[in-house]
Amino acid sequence: MNFVLRRLIQVPLVALLVASLCFFLMHILPGSPFDRERAGPAAAKAAVEARYHLDKPLPVQYLYWLSDVVRGDLGPSLKYRNHSVNDILAQTLPVSFTLGWLAFGVALGVGVPLGAWAALRPGSWGDWCAAFLVLLGVCVPSFIVGPLLILIFSLKLGWFPAALWGGVSNAVLPVTALGLFFAARVARLAREGITETLRSEFIMAVRAKGAGEFRVLTRHAFRTGLLPVVSYCGPMLADLLTGSFVIETVFQIPGTGTFFINAFNNKDYTMIVGITLLYAVLLLSLNLIVDLAYAWLDPRVRHD
């Protein structure tokens, strides 16, 4: 219990640390988010910068930011001036999350059975199938897979919409394109893990005790063999968020990834720092859950 508590306290602290680092780095860099192609009156720029406290010394700006963050306010977006960062995140995060969860589901739902099958029947067509998927997923970038899927299944066959978000049919292609890459990795990990476990002494011992093959597999081989998959779930979540940017661009999906990446180009400080903070909190919490799941599955791990 102590372990969980310690980790729980760590989550906001680490997140704040990362976000603060981000905050200072972004502010030290030269330039203003209000640089425009058309040189507006200097007074206009000064007025806007003053409104966002950008004319104050950096430590003061930091305190302003910190006091807002403590109250749950990530500040106004400096690029999208009619929206606060909270507002943008409230609208876009559910979209990115749905996309991410679905892809996560595809990665596990497709990757695990495929990997298990390949491990149990090495050399069968299932194994080849899995190998092919792995190669496709790992060797072809998703910004090629995405447009290819659109071209075939939307523009040529007309089965699914080509872009945008909303209905279930909108989700099919982007989730496939995003999930495929991760399904490939999961399948690979699952295949290796289960193959390894099946060869291990402990499975031989279980078999020697006379356990049925089904029981051997479900109770022992899978449980241990899938541990690498479980420990990959944590980083996979982080990669899903990153990977979702490409998919969001290709499929014109109004998610958070686009705002995150573009905020760097726009020098939208509050947006970068805000999204970083939120991502950090979410990912660290999710990783905590993954760690607990790991402990649950692996009898050797004890958190005291």
Binding site: V18, P235, A238, D239, I261, L283, L284
Partner: peptide
């Protein structure tokens, strides 16, 4: 570090 998106560090 493992649990944070590494694109953040690369972009920064």
């Amino acid at each position: 570090l493992y649990s944070l998106p590494n694109i953040l560090f690369v972009m920064l």
